[in-house]
Simulated assay, not measured.
Amino acid sequence: MEFSLLYFANREAEDPPQEYELLIKAAEFADANNFTALWIPERHFHPFGGAYPNPALAAAALATRTQRIRLRAGSVVLPLHDPLTVVENWSFVDNLSYGRVDLAFAAGWNPNDFVLAPDRYENRREYTFDAIDTVRDLWAGKAVLRENGEGVAFETRTYPRPVQPEPNLWFTCTSSRSSFTQAGARGLNVLTALLFQSPEELAENIEHYRASREQHGHDPAAGKVTLMLHTFAGESDSSVRKTVRKPFINYLLSSIDLWKGQWPELQDGNPERLARLAFQRYFLTSALFGSVDKCTAFAQRLEAAGVDEIASLVDFGVEATEVLAALPYLEEVRRNLAGGTDTAHQ
Rank of each mutant, 00 (worst) to 15 (best):
F289R: 05
P111G: 07
N110E: 06
G269D: 04
D15A: 12
A37F: 04
G261W: 08
I310C: 03
L22T: 11
I132R: 04
Q215W: 06
A278E: 04
L330A: 10
Q346W: 08
F105R: 02
P47T: 09
H230I: 00
L327I: 05
S179F: 00
T285L: 12
A26P: 10
G234H: 04
D219N: 15
I132Y: 02
A326W: 07
F298G: 05
S212H: 02
R177D: 08
T343Q: 15
P271Q: 05
P79S: 09
W170K: 01
A32E: 15
L191R: 04
R301P: 00
P17F: 03
T321R: 14
A222V: 03
V87I: 07
W170H: 05
E88R: 14
Q346E: 12
R245E: 13
L258V: 05
G234L: 05
A51S: 14
A233H: 09
E235N: 10
L169I: 06
T174L: 11
D315L: 05
N110W: 10
S236F: 07
T172F: 03
D102R: 00
L138I: 09
F316R: 00
H81E: 14
A311G: 14
D342V: 10
R11M: 15
F92I: 15
D257F: 04
N123R: 15
N112V: 10
S179Y: 01
Q215G: 07
L284E: 11
R11E: 14
L78N: 07
R157P: 05
A287W: 02
V163M: 14
H230Q: 09
L5Q: 05
W109I: 06
V333D: 04
T343Y: 10
A185T: 01
N110S: 12
A60P: 03
S312H: 09
P247F: 03
R161G: 08
L284M: 03
S212A: 14
E303D: 08
A344G: 11
S212P: 08
P111S: 05
P79I: 04
H208V: 05
R120A: 12
A326S: 15
Q18D: 13
N148Q: 11
E126G: 15
D102F: 00
L5T: 06
R161S: 14
R157G: 07
L145F: 00
E155L: 11
A60D: 08
Q18F: 02
P79F: 06
A143K: 10
Y127G: 06
E200D: 13
S175L: 00
K224N: 10
V101K: 01
T343L: 14
H218P: 10
P47G: 04
S286G: 06
F316I: 00
R210V: 11
E126Q: 15
V93C: 07
D15H: 12
A203G: 13
G340K: 03
A153K: 12
D315W: 02
K142Y: 06
N33G: 05
P220K: 11
F171N: 06
V163Y: 13
R72V: 13
T172M: 13
L202G: 11
F114G: 09
D219H: 12
V101D: 01
A56K: 07
Q182M: 13
E207A: 15
